[in-house]
């Protein structure tokens, strides 16, 4: 399965890949674990995932070609 990744803010500095082939990962819990293993900085910070432009609140099954947005909180003003 292939997904598209959109990273925002500080996360875009270390997750620069735009596309990801997922083997054996079928849901967002699996994806989070995969991303946090691959990019340890991610596990050190708060972030939220959106799947196909909707914030997900619970583990969500991923479809092929899903667009995943990874968004950190911003505080600056």
């Amino acid at each position: 399965m292939e997904i598209e990744l959109l990273s925002f803010g500080k996360i875009a500095e270390f997750i620069t890949v735009k596309r990801l082939m997922l083997d054996g990962i079928s849901d967002t819990d699996g994806l989070k674990k995969h991303l946090e293993d691959k990019f340890p900085q991610l596990s050190e910070m708060k972030y939220k995932l959106a799947v196909d432009k909707r914030i997900i609140q619970e583990n969500t099954i991923l479809q092929n070609k899903a667009i995943i947005a990874i968004m950190p909180p911003f505080s600056g003003g």
């Binding site: 500080k10 050190e44 910070m45 708060k46 939220k48 968004m71 909180p73 505080s75 600056g76």
Partner: peptide, 19 residues
């Protein structure tokens, strides 16, 4: 809080002054 339920710790996310 529906986006970010827990307040980040100090230093976890930088602000304009640092960034």
């Amino acid at each position: 809080r529906d986006l970010f339920p827990i307040q980040p710790n100090k230093g976890e996310i930088s602000n304009c002054a640092e960034n």
